[in-house]
Amino acid sequence: MSPATTMIKEDAIPYLEFPSSNRSNPSRKQCLIFFITGNPGLASYYTPFLTHLRHLLNSLESNSNTAYHIYSRNLLGFSDLDHSPPFGTPIPSPSQTVTQPFTLEDQIQSLTSTLLSLNSPTPFSSIILIGHSVGAYMATEIFHRNHLSPSPSLPLTSGILLFPTLTHIARSPSGQKLSFIAATPLLNSYAHVAAKAIVNILPTYLLSSILSRIMKMPPHAASTTLSFLQSRDGIWQAIHMGKDEMSTITEEKWSQDLWQLSHDTTQQNGGEKFYFYFAKKDHWVADEVRDAFIARRKEDGRGRTRATICEEGLPHAFCIHHSETVAEKVGMWIEEITG
């Protein structure tokens, strides 16, 4: 995992967990709902979403033989405590380089390690991956790698991909802006420095006021954003990973059989293997890219996918104001998947 000189402190990665009271019930199937955040990768943005989903799954558990466990965690680098030394620390070598933030590949490897840890020593009957934004790409890539393994180590059943950035993210309106930063040498090297400098000159009370009164963020989003902006390395991590997304999330690279059910369908009870939920207008997903992706799924007669374009006008960052609305949809799809 790169950069090799940056040590990951797994025990210090912030996480959210909403376990089922029926985890130890041997008569129930055990299903893990593993949620992967977008960028910036702070799980606390999704506290209302996951809390409401827990409430919905409690009701579902009362009428089923499945126990549902919800887990989410920060992506690497968004907590100053989860890595050492700080980004930008000089590396003693002739190359005169410094430690760098984590890449998209680092995040995928780390999330896979967390999944393997959660699935041991008592394995789950099934695992549903939910990903938001770039988290949807990471969820799909984890599915892909597990699918290619001769002996899959994770019982992955379905993926629910919310406002997914799966191909050609650089063609989106926001992607074009980030690509411009990456292509401009001065901005590429110092955008995070400038952004952090601006944040540092603003007193906390003024920054809080901007977030809550001007940007109209609810308390959970305002406090999470404030923590992110005032962290030592968070802004650098977000921009660094965003630039990596521009060069990594390009052409669709997954084979058609990823979207199809395997021969062993004992864990599938009529639901789809993948659910895609797209915004009608999304500044991180170009309309033509979204439409082409959906068209390819429709052409695959054996694929078990369902793509929905939101007609309610929900924004890409649904976790700020629309958590309950999206949780209701996700709860419905989980019910379909698990029967």
Rank of each mutant, 00 (worst) to 15 (best):
T103W: 01
L211E: 11
E105Y: 06
H147V: 00
S223H: 13
L154Q: 10
F180N: 11
P94S: 15
I142R: 01
T167A: 10
D106S: 14
H147R: 13
S126Y: 02
V193K: 08
H132K: 13
T184S: 14
H168R: 08
S93A: 14
I210M: 07
A136T: 00
P155C: 11
F87T: 10
Q96I: 08
S189Q: 15
I128L: 04
E105K: 13
E141N: 15
P219F: 02
I130T: 10
L229E: 11
A139K: 03
H220N: 12
S227L: 11
N200C: 06
T89Y: 00
A194T: 10
L161Q: 15
M217N: 15
P90A: 04
P155N: 12
L162M: 07
Q100S: 13
E105Q: 14
P123A: 04
S117I: 03
R171T: 12
Q230W: 05
R171L: 12
S189H: 12
P173W: 00
S110M: 01
P219R: 06
P203M: 01
S223R: 14
P203A: 02
H147Y: 10
S151V: 09
F228C: 05
G175C: 03
A195I: 04
H147Q: 09
S95R: 14
L148N: 11
A191G: 09
A194L: 13
P94Y: 15
A170R: 09
P150Q: 06
I201N: 00
T140V: 07
T114G: 08
D233N: 12
F180K: 13
T157Q: 09
T89N: 01
F102L: 05
S158H: 05
I142S: 04
S189W: 03
T224M: 00
L187N: 05
H132Y: 05
Q230F: 02
I210F: 06
I169K: 05
S125R: 07
S151P: 01
I91M: 02
F180S: 13
P150D: 11
M217G: 10
M215H: 15
T99W: 01
P121I: 00
T225R: 11
Q109G: 12
A194F: 07
S95A: 14
L206M: 10
T114I: 11
Q230R: 15
H220E: 06
Q107V: 08
S158C: 07
L178R: 11
P152I: 03
I128K: 05
A183P: 09
P218K: 12
A139W: 00
P121W: 00
R145S: 11
T112E: 15
H168Q: 12
S212Y: 07
I198Y: 00
I142H: 05
M217C: 14
F180M: 11
L129Y: 04
Q107A: 06
P152S: 05
A170F: 09
T167Y: 00
N119R: 12
L104F: 02
Q96T: 12
S172P: 09
S151D: 13
P152F: 01
V98W: 02
I181V: 13
I142G: 10
L115M: 06
L211D: 11
F163Y: 06
L118H: 01
K196W: 03
L166Y: 04
H220V: 09
T204L: 01
S158Y: 04
R213G: 15
R213W: 12
G131I: 01
F87C: 05
S209F: 01
E105I: 07
P94L: 14
